[in-house]
Nucleic acid binder design. Sequence first.
DNA 1: TATGGACCCTGTAGTTGGTACAGGGTCAAG
DNA 2: CTTGACCCTGTACCAACTACAGGGTCCATA
Lengths: 135, 135
Amino acid sequence: MVALTIGKLASATGTKVETVRYYERAGLIDPPARTDGNYRAYRPEDLERLRFIRRTRDLGFSLDEVRALLNLAAQRDRDCGTVDELATRHLEEIDRKIADLMALRRELAGVIASCAGGTMADCRILGAFAPSAAS
Amino acid sequence: MVALTIGKLASATGTKVETVRYYERAGLIDPPARTDGNYRAYRPEDLERLRFIRRTRDLGFSLDEVRALLNLAAQRDRDCGTVDELATRHLEEIDRKIADLMALRRELAGVIASCAGGTMADCRILGAFAPSAAS
DNA sequence: TATGGACCCTGTAGTTGGTACAGGGTCAAG
DNA sequence: CTTGACCCTGTACCAACTACAGGGTCCATA
């Protein structure tokens, strides 16, 4: 029998067992067949599918986006432009996040650089956190 | 009377009313006095405190870190080194996040660049998402 | 004085993407 | 036959809010 237990499936993909069950609840993987003892019995295709999920999650796609990608991948005759579009939009979002973090980083670094020691009462960092008054 | 309603406090700091109540539940702001009609009555100091919270939140500090900063700020005679340390650790974390996102961005951009159109069946992007087999 | 609308109150549930039990059942080895 | 590793379901928890539902209050205007 080529069937995998959930533990094998999980360790083969670097996923936790609970996460696999969570993906099933979330509708990302179909409920597999069960053994006599009510254990989940996965097929090799399920391993492929879970790997796909892991990979796309690692690339920062949300579960909704992963679901969409899985659905698209299943329609093998359709044009793949939609995939490109989805991935490109995701890339743009990553770019926005990077830009936001860099702006924040610049601001925080400025605040920290202003520190000249002393007590809390005259701390420049805390001062920078209190917009109007010095308290 | 200088007391502010929760709505005034919220709009003066760009916060939602529910968020202010949430901060109270989370122990970031003390439960204020109440009016006869059981409305929260805030003092100007509360406005300062909420501004501080908003500012530090905007700089990416977690609520736990904000709590710590508020506690430190209250001990006006202590040395402010701890504040500097907390802020510096936070900056390092931001740097890690930026680095992670940039690595991810590079990888995703590579995947997208490989796209040559065609059907899902021979989509290079989907191929890059399926680690071993082509399915 | 009545009434309407803007505001406030508490309490609870939902969001994302899992993680962590509790309290059981199954399976294989020794 | 027992032990330990694994599996099952169901529920609760995390951050940091947000969004109601179902009520109460306040004040300006008709």
